[in-house]
């Protein structure tokens, strides 16, 4: 099938402001949007810049706006879009460095700020084996372990667009992953961080993040659970 493929371009050494380039492409309905980007870079315009690696939705490199929604380019097929025009733009809320490549540093800084690692001060188990954790305890935080740090959620959030100091949904997801892990002892510290002005209270429950997540994490619910933990002081 034939489609019109539009990409918002910005070459910092050449352009004063972004503009759309457009190509008429012959594609298969089962092609990924990433395949279209590769086709353009490979055969029409080598200067087109985008990030990609695994090409099947697990590395988180290629989050971008596709027909107005944050998606991974490798996880959206042409047939899913049901349109003869496919428009691709960089994520909103992060500075564009070139074409579809945005500055990820603020995103990773927010992630690091919530102490995204197991905090555990007790000595290892006496027999030298694993700590015990029941399947139910493990299930409690399963959903938020799936995060691939692609930034699709954070850059879909109006609260983040209006204030980049907000840690954003992805950072809260990664805090949640440890707060509700029965082996972790750092919940109080993380809840204190997320109770600050840059924390969870900036969330207005818009659900954009949940809709944007390519891993189907129930992000808004995770944020609500963190809010509740701050209010009640309980991790249930």
């Amino acid at each position: 099938m034939k489609i019109t493929f539009k990409v918002l371009r910005f070459h910092p050494e050449r352009d004063e402001k972004p503009h759309f380039d457009s190509w008429d492409l012959e594609v298969e309905p089962t092609d990924r949007v990433l395949d279209l980007l590769e086709q353009v870079r490979g055969f029409y315009d080598g200067s087109l810049a985008f990030r990609r690696s695994c090409a099947h939705g697990v590395c988180g490199s290629d989050a971008m706006r596709i027909n107005g929604r944050n998606r991974l380019a490798c996880k959206v097929l042409v047939r899913d879009l049901d349109s003869n025009t496919i428009t691709v733009e960089p994520l909103l809320g992060l500075r564009v460095l070139k074409d579809l490549i945005v500055d990820m540093d603020p995103f990773f800084k927010a992630y690091r700020s919530v102490k995204p690692y197991l905090i555990h001060t007790s000595p290892p188990v006496a027999d030298g084996r694993e700590r015990l954790q029941s399947p139910e305890q493990r299930e409690r935080f399963d959903d938020t372990t799936k995060c691939i740090l692609c930034a699709a959620c954070t850059t879909s959030c109006p609260a983040y667009w209006s204030n980049g100091d907000y840690v954003g949904p992805a950072a809260i997801v990664n805090a949640h992953r440890f707060i509700f892990d029965s082996r972790d002892q750092g919940a109080a510290e993380r809840l204190r961080i997320l109770n600050e002005q840059t924390g969870v209270w900036r969330c207005r429950t818009v659900f954009n993040c949940t809709e944007a997540c390519p891993r189907d994490i129930k992000i808004t619910q995770a944020i609500a659970e963190v809010k509740r933990a701050i209010l009640t002081g309980k991790l249930d």
Binding site: L118, H120, R129, L132, Q133, S134, R138
Partner: peptide, 13 residues
């Protein structure tokens, strides 16, 4: 020990 969330057996291993 580092925190890897392995799936667990019914007895927590």
């Amino acid at each position: 020990q580092m925190g890897l969330p392995f799936s667990r057996t019914p007895d927590g291993r």
